[in-house]
């Protein structure tokens, strides 16, 4: 098996994507952050650094909760998606 790109990996998963976001960040705090630990915490590459700015998406979230405890600046607000939404593992 060859290396799989993250978007291709996530594309095989079953998701029920909510219109309500369950991840919020404080851009002010992120712009002053020196280490952006969220990037390395998230196993689904939900956080990316573009032109020195953190951008994020919630759709591919695997609901592990790593970003919540990795951010030591108090920027990431991660809650569970509403019931019935989010990732749905069928193997696990």
């Amino acid at each position: 098996m060859s290396v799989t790109k993250m978007q291709d990996k996530l594309a095989v998963n079953k998701y029920d994507i909510d219109n309500d976001v369950h991840i919020l960040i404080d851009e002010d705090i992120c712009s002053r952050c020196e280490h952006h630990r969220c990037i390395y915490a998230c196993p689904a590459d939900c956080y990316t650094l573009e032109n020195e700015h953190i951008t994020y998406s919630y759709e591919g979230c695997l609901e592990c909760g790593s970003c919540r405890i990795a951010c030591d600046k108090g920027s990431v607000k991660w809650i569970l998606p509403r019931p019935g939404f989010g990732v749905c593992f069928v193997y696990g």
């Binding site: 594309a11 095989v12 079953k14 994507i17 069928v90 193997y91």
Partner: peptide
């Protein structure tokens, strides 16, 4: 069948003109 089945997992049986239920969804 759940319309949100990942596209790669959506399979049909063309002989029987039937959708094959996706495992575990």
């Amino acid at each position: 069948m759940d319309p949100e089945i990942p596209t790669g997992k959506f399979k049909i049986d063309p002989e029987a003109n039937r959708v094959i239920p996706s495992e575990g969804i």
